[in-house]
């Protein structure tokens, strides 16, 4: 057995040996002033019983951790899914209403109730037919499959048509709703949002000042009703009725919105000209 260490509580002198000395060589205190110092490391490690460094322990630890976390996440996800879906659906309805220049963020505004008056229709190429499926929260896939949704709403006694549009921004998807007036030749209101555009730059397309720039704009330039002329330019470069100023410092996102609105309305051109 290795030697033990004893510390003098009076002066801090450390004596090495099997037992406390009779007298401290520094301050002359008696043996009662000495206490044994427990050696760190050697003895306590055996007490633990588990060797946390061994391969078996590491593998079991990792497996248990992964299983626990996986179950936890799956549980949280499945418990919260219905609430989340309801939120998403409610939010989508709110976005469609926002395109009608309705302030859905106003206190006490009930989105579900207000949305009841909006009819979800499909454009089959010649006429609008009622849509009987489940309410969709995103329209990218539907448009690609040729399923052209049109929401019909009445605002102050006038019919408005809301067209869902989708596109790509700088970092991820963009989507929006463009509300057209009853003659379908001019914009009544818009709403845009994004998955992951840069905060403070591209993300500003989600702000009302940007969206309200579209209000009252014509869809076509002059009498040319073959191609949609409405687009977004670089900030400050907009000329004429059909060009809207983009967001400063977010040229690519602005271009994305331009392509989305232009192409999105383009897909509905037979409806617009009907």
């Amino acid at each position: 057995m290795a030697t033990k260490k004893f510390k003098c509580e009076v002066c801090g002198y450390i004596h090495v040996g099997d037992a406390a000395p009779d007298k401290c060589p520094v301050c002359a205190a008696g043996p009662e002033a000495f206490t044994e110092i427990a050696e760190a490391g050697a003895v306590p490690s055996k007490k633990k019983g588990l060797d946390t460094g061994s391969n078996t322990y590491t593998i079991i630890y990792a497996s248990v951790m992964v299983i626990v976390v996986a179950f936890l996440l799956a549980f949280v996800s499945s418990v919260l899914k219905p609430t989340q879906d309801a939120n998403v659906e409610n939010d989508t309805k709110g976005q469609i209403l926002t395109a009608l220049n309705i302030d859905v963020k106003a206190p006490g505004f009930n989105i579900a109730k207000e949305f009841a008056g909006v009819r979800d229709m499909l454009w089959n190429g010649t006429e609008l037919v009622p849509y009987n499926g489940q309410f969709l929260s995103s329209y990218g896939a539907a448009i690609k499959e040729g399923e052209l949704h049109v929401f019909v709403a009445e605002v102050d006694g006038e019919t408005k048509y809301i067209i869902p549009v989708t596109g790509r921004g700088l970092w991820g998807g963009l989507w929006g709703y463009v509300a057209l007036n009853a003659d379908k030749k001019s914009v009544f209101g818009t709403y845009f949002y994004h998955e992951s555009e840069t905060a403070g730059l591209g993300a500003r397309i989600g702000e009302r000042w940007f969206q309200e720039q579209f209000n009252g704009r014509p869809v076509f330039a002059g009498d040319n009703d073959g191609t949609v002329a409405l687009k977004v330019t670089k900030a400050g470069a907009a000329k004429g009725e059909t060009e809207v100023n983009g967001v400063t410092g977010a040229t690519l996102t602005s271009e994305g919105v331009s392509a989305m609105v232009n192409g999105g309305l383009g897909a509905y051109i037979s409806f617009i000209n009907n």
């Binding site: 976390v69 936890l72 996440l73 949280v76 919260l80 609430t83 989340q84 939120n87 998403v88």
Partner: peptide, 16 residues
């Protein structure tokens, strides 16, 4: 990562 995922799920469900 687990914590962040749970927090983001909770935010989505209760403070959308």
């Amino acid at each position: 990562a687990a914590l962040v995922t749970i927090v983001s799920q909770l935010l989505k469900a209760y403070v959308y």
